[in-house]
Design a protein around this nucleic acid. Structure first.
Lengths: 226, 226
DNA sequence: GTCTATATACGGATAGAC
DNA sequence: GTCTATCCGTATATAGAC
């Protein structure tokens, strides 16, 4: 699988994501026309990511957001109850998106080695497809309230566990060497994250997402087999 | 080398760091007694790290900092000209500290393999010793002005280059297999960073810094030799 | 649904007493 | 060197017109 093929296969688009956001939070949203809401959520999210990328979410004022979206302050508050709620909406949707895609991608694969490459690759490709979303989710997790922070940490453990399960399965089948699989999983996650955290670095060096994913996989597999 | 041995060897302490900060920025500091200044800088930095760890630097108000340090607002502004300058001081000092320690640690080692383990280990141990400083430097880099941001990125490239040089040396000597050394270096950096970015995770699982460093090294070497 | 105008609170920074 | 008191700009959020 290449990144181009991944994009074809995946059904998640900005629009479907925004539709989900709208339906999940309908009780707090003043806007009644779904079409309007979806269109504006897309604009709002893009603006949040753009502004927060350099300043951070805290430093982004509602006036900044108003200017960037072209919506007035009053209008914006029709889409969420407070600035904090906006943050939570984005974080929650991010988690549900990752969970859905990752669980889906390994269902049809049995071979542990192939399973491992698939899940690593899928995660990196997804992070490329919605990179601003991933970057934002990581960097702004600290601004969450305790409850939501716990949920974010649980998500980290959850995706790590997916990797651990595959590594253990591989060991059972005699494909992978016995190791501290949980620690291996942590290293894999660290490498996956670097792709969206250090965008500027890889862009400057013209590393493609396919190159990067393949390199991570070659590193991981050579370790698991050694 | 273990973490305990590293701590013995290293001459950098909070105090020496604060002394450097004082001397570097003396022209902007109203406080004339070095001893007072060093003592209070230590208090101030600790407070900044503590508050920023959860809220972020932007969200930390000078009133928060005043409360946590026990110094009044007026007193605080004797130690730096503005909140932004405080951020820059911390970032600059962090860079000079890392540079000093890393350059120093490989001077006496010739063997490429040993050189590689040493530099990986030293970086992780240093990040453990002044973890709040590392975490802060990474998370708050975005709040820097363009010039300082460039310096921070240059620092990332610099430490990466140290790794690349070692890997190339190793290839020349026939120890390491030919690879994309720069990409390998990036992966190493990603793994190093995870130790201070995800403190909560490793703490919860009782992973020691020695365990972590050794595991990273075993992963990297098995890849470089494969 | 979206706008403008505004209420109210809090931010960084400084002046001047001690 | 440190404190208290205060200036003044900007923050989030809402009320009410269109």
């Amino acid at each position: 699988m290449t990144y181009a093929e991944f994009k074809q296969k995946i059904t998640e688009t900005k629009q479907t994501i925004c539709r989900e956001v709208y339906r999940e939070n309908q009780e707090n949203i003043r806007i009644k026309k779904e079409k309007t809401a979806i269109k504006n959520f897309e604009i709002i999210f893009d603006a949040v990511f753009k502004i927060s990328y350099t300043k951070g979410f805290q430093a982004m004022s509602m006036r900044d957001l108003s200017r960037e979206t072209g919506l007035s302050m009053g209008a914006l508050y029709g889409y969420f109850k407070s600035k904090d709620e906006l943050l939570e909406i984005i974080q929650r949707q991010g988690r549900s998106m990752v969970k859905g895609v990752l669980v889906d991608c390994i269902k049809t694969v049995d071979n542990p080695m192939e399973k491992l490459s698939t899940v690593i690759k899928t995660h990196i490709y997804l992070s490329e497809m919605v990179r601003p979303w991933f970057f934002f989710t990581f960097m702004e997790a600290r601004n969450l309230c305790e409850e939501e922070l716990k949920a974010a940490q649980a998500m980290e453990s959850y995706t790590e566990q997916i990797l651990v399960d595959i590594l253990e399965l591989g060991e059972t089948k005699g494909v992978f060497k016995p190791k501290n699989h949980r620690l291996t999983a942590s290293l894999i996650k660290a490498m996956q994250q670097d792709w969206y955290l250090k965008r500027w670095k890889y862009k400057k060096r013209n590393i493609t997402v396919d190159e990067y994913a393949d390199y991570v996989i070659s590193c991981v597999t050579s370790f698991c087999l050694a």
